[in-house]
Design a binder for these strands. Structure first.
Lengths: 336, 336
DNA sequence: TTGTAGGCGTTATCAC
DNA sequence: GTGATAACGCCTACAA
């Protein structure tokens, strides 16, 4: 399966040199502009290149330069608008910086060592989402000298970290809900799902405690629409409804919206509802979702630039960037 | 500036050989399992590898084997659920086949020659979306012997093509609308935007003509939500409303939904509305969107496998796969 | 079973 | 200015 030798054209620098009647060193010089070449020779080489449609091999170049001009990003999954938007921001910044982009999805499982090392050997640096590569493996990568940026999780020794602020928004959300009379707060979440999700829950609890309000009820529920639809359905079937159902992310809130429809519960009249992320659908659904806007593209973009700084050596010390988020009040919370 | 930091670890096969007291050929053998090695030697090599935490360099390997075990996919843009879903399907299939994934977005412009060639020199094959690389460049890539699959556009000599069927669905959609009494059909589209979009328009026209129905009114409008919101707003402001507004894609339909709200037009009572693609939001909005389901993941997945077949030589001749689509009737068309 | 040596396509350091 | 030539890290006949 490996061979099946499809031999590709492969015009090499030797053929160009040959055609132009010069040495490969000279060809390399005009290609890189690394030293003066007589105008005449220069011209001949250029012609040979054009005639032979020569493109230098990235492989040879990378081997000689010991750099790939490429970096990778590892996702836990590719499903949904969140990761897509992060990728969009990442790709944009990376290509701006002249680096190719390799992606890998671990499909919601910890990536195996082999796969990660393979990827690592193709790039100059790696961005790792939370829930993709375990701590020990990250440490090993860092130890090998590979520039690493972790995304959506707390810092790791020797690696940069980029996260979105969850605490400030959790606080703002709680303030808003409390100020408008909501008392019984139920939360759809799974604090163990990821670092981000845990921070949101912790932030909610802390904010509530800070105001001397009764603690929220945690309804443990996987971070996806279907699970949320079920869990919310259970809540909506109760005799005593909570004032508000706070969801750990928008896809859960979207599922809850469907559950409300099923149960003939009016949002926000019977129960208020909030999400988190501000995905595109949040503003299209009715009632439009009150949510917390995450700077998804910026997360990706910042990860790319941080990685680049580390690769080029522009920055030596690790940083932890916390990007600001914003409470977006629409109609689902009932207090527009 | 410590060259320990700049220069990455770089444990080479030589160091392993050295430590195990064997030649690099032997190390390579145990690594690849390409020939018998005495159990004793085998053991020593394995230990050396472990102790040195050696990982073979993809570069050296790729250069020697003249294969990257990676392939690339080029998108016109990364925005929105359509491309994300295709990518998801692509990544899944490609990683299943043991190939790394390189992505490139041309940001809605034709990719320049240099960028494409650079990407091409990093991979064993390329998937090219419509509207990313011009015909001449595709021909050149094919001519160089690079396996190429075009996605969402008609076939190119020497390359595989994968598309979703647009004609059958256009026909089904027209049948459905006509059968339920809709006569005045307005279409929000921009036939020049892409091959896919043109096919949809052509298919609509053909189906209408086939039924002897009056032709649809084309309202030219860019393929995005904001443009559609404006254009639909204009339509909804008319004295005489069409029976149905058919949009070339769901994001346009979503924009039209907002325009209807702005204009206090009831969908589907005053005007029926349809989309195309069946993105996730289509089922969440109210009224839920009648649309055409595109097998987005399968498009990506099939492109990946087709490319792999070509790369490994499992298939010699080019194919054009047309994936089936499906009319999804919800409530926005008013004839549920 | 194991080692030697040439090759893969560049870059870069020497001499000339 | 240019041309040999040694890396770069690996694979693989060909020998031993």
């Amino acid at each position: 399966m490996t061979d099946a030798g499809v031999r590709r054209s492969g015009v090499t620098i030797y053929q160009v040199a040959n055609r132009a009647g010069v040495s490969i060193a000279t060809v390399s010089r005009v290609l890189r502009g690394t030293a003066r070449v007589s105008p005449d020779t220069h011209q001949r080489v250029l012609e040979a290149i054009k005639e032979l449609r020569y493109t230098p091999s990235r492989l040879g170049r990378a081997l000689a330069e010991r750099r790939h001009a490429a970096n990778g990003i590892v996702f836990p999954e590719l499903f949904g608008p969140y990761y897509s938007e992060v990728l969009l921001g990442y790709e944009e910044a990376a290509s701006e910086l002249g680096r190719s982009v390799l992606i890998l999805s671990t499909h919601m499982a910890a990536a195996d060592r082999e796969t990660v090392l393979d990827l690592a050997s193709r790039v100059d640096g790696l961005v790792l989402f939370d829930q993709t590569v375990d701590e020990a493996m990250i440490a090993e990568l860092v130890d090998r000298g590979l520039p690493v940026v972790v995304l959506g999780r707390g810092p790791v020794e020797g690696a940069d970290a980029v996260t979105a602020d969850n605490l400030v928004s959790a606080h703002a959300l709680v303030e808003h809900l409390l100020d408008h009379g909501h008392r019984r707060i139920a939360v759809l979440s799974d604090p163990n799902a990821s670092s981000d999700i845990r921070e949101r829950w912790d932030g909610l609890c802390a904010a509530l405690a800070g105001r001397g309000a009764p603690p929220a009820e945690l309804i443990t529920c996987a971070i996806d629409e279907d699970a949320a639809r079920l869990a919310a359905g259970e809540v909506f079937g109760r005799d005593e409804l909570p004032d508000v159902l706070v969801c750990a992310c928008d896809s859960q809130a979207l599922g809850a919206l469907l559950a409300a429809e099923d149960a003939r519960i009016s949002i926000p009249d019977d129960v208020a509802l909030t999400g988190w992320d501000d995905v595109m659908a949040a503003k299209y659904v009715r009632p439009a979702l009150t949510t917390v806007r995450q700077p998804m593209r910026e997360l990706g973009g910042r990860a790319a630039t941080a990685l680049d700084e580390r690769i080029t050596g522009a920055r030596e010390t690790a940083v932890h960037d916390v990007l600001p988020t914003e409470l977006v009040i629409r109609t689902s919370c009932g207090v527009h």
